[in-house]
Design a protein around this nucleic acid. Structure first.
Lengths: 193, 193
DNA sequence: TAGCTTCTACCGGTCGGTCGGTCGGGGCCA
DNA sequence: TGGCCCCGACCGACCGACCGGTAGAAGCTA
């Protein structure tokens, strides 16, 4: 019934880090959330910073396996782009606090942890930009610069976790569809223009 | 030559808050940045939280006067939307740390300060959504929900300050133009679809 | 001298993290 | 079966460092 304690700790920490921010969250709060004292919590974790890194590592792995690995198998470039946007957007609607933390708390890491995460983020962004670049050489991009396009789409996607509420008027599927449509018709060349 | 000390303090604080985050920034760091000791700094400011609030207040005022007030005078809705996106995007490229802080450090405020800022943010986003809504009744929006559209565009715009570098390959004008184009063709109905 | 500006020194409080120790259940042996 | 002990899981108490903020006096300028 219960999951194991480490998993419970990581999920609770991710949620609280997301709600209050990494620096504004004390180790004590995390301990209380998992019904431990601070010292008890330290039986499981190595430190606050390590906790943050593990959460970000998990989030990047999720992105790499759930978005990149899947989209890379699609050879049609338009469909590949649609997969990237819709799958990443879907993850953002599913309360993945870890994914949201990726964006805001990078500075909380040590230099080497930061380098490791940033490298993987750059690789992700490169995948997106290359997909747009390849679409460009197929003439399907209009007068669009792949870099601006990639960051533009990424901004739309990442922002979802800030405004989407599961109990709101729009369902997760609706939001994902809407964002995907804006993204695709935003960057793809139009039949006549 | 120098501006007055309070202005220097606000600008330095905004820059450091943006770079390191509000909670990770100590009063001492801000003091050193303006060549004062901590106590010397307190001659000018009321406290760390008040400093944050004044920065956010300034940022919201900038948004209201430089974006909303200008765009509201344009009666053509497509042009109005173009003005909102391009003017807001332009502000994001101009190193306005204050604008960027608006997004991430809301939780650092007291409850009443937070309410004040959030109300104005809601008003801004309502302006954007209403513009999209009016475009919708003119049949120029395709099958797009104004709320998703507004947040989608906002995400693209706010994200700019995270990736745009003034010394990079793309100029501020190019980025603004690109983002504006993606935004407009993303939400407006296409000639044939 | 008057008063604006800035300093040194210090406060109470909270932080991340550590240390020695406790407790209960499962394995082991007679 | 009964008694023993070991060890994983957890805790109370504490540490040094640093935080935001303050008091009061010194320096500078007019």
């Amino acid at each position: 019934m219960d999951q194991d304690k480490p998993t419970e700790i990581y999920q609770a920490a991710a949620r609280i880090f997301y709600e209050k921010g990494y620096h504004a969250t004390s180790i004590n709060e995390i301990a209380e959330a998992v019904h431990l004292t601070k010292a008890g919590l330290y039986y499981y974790i190595k430190g606050k910073q390590d906790l943050l890194y593990r959460i970000m590592d998990f989030a990047m792995t999720t992105l790499e396996t759930e978005v990149v690995a899947v989209a890379a198998q699609e050879s049609d470039l338009v469909e590949r782009l649609r997969l990237i946007v819709s799958r990443h957007a879907y993850l953002m609607t599913q309360g993945g606090s870890a994914l949201a933390i990726l964006v805001n708390e990078i500075e909380g890491l040590t230099e080497s942890q930061k380098n490791s995460i940033v490298d993987r983020q750059r690789s992700y962004i490169r995948f997106l930009r290359d997909t747009l670049g390849a679409l460009g050489t197929e003439g399907k991009l209009g007068r669009l610069d792949p870099t601006s396009g990639a960051f533009g789409l990424l901004g739309m996607i990442l922002w979802i976790s800030r405004w989407f509420r599961a109990d709101g008027q729009l369902s997760a599927e609706e939001v994902v569809d809407q964002v995907t449509e804006i993204a695709l018709s935003g960057v793809l060349a139009h039949p006549q223009s």
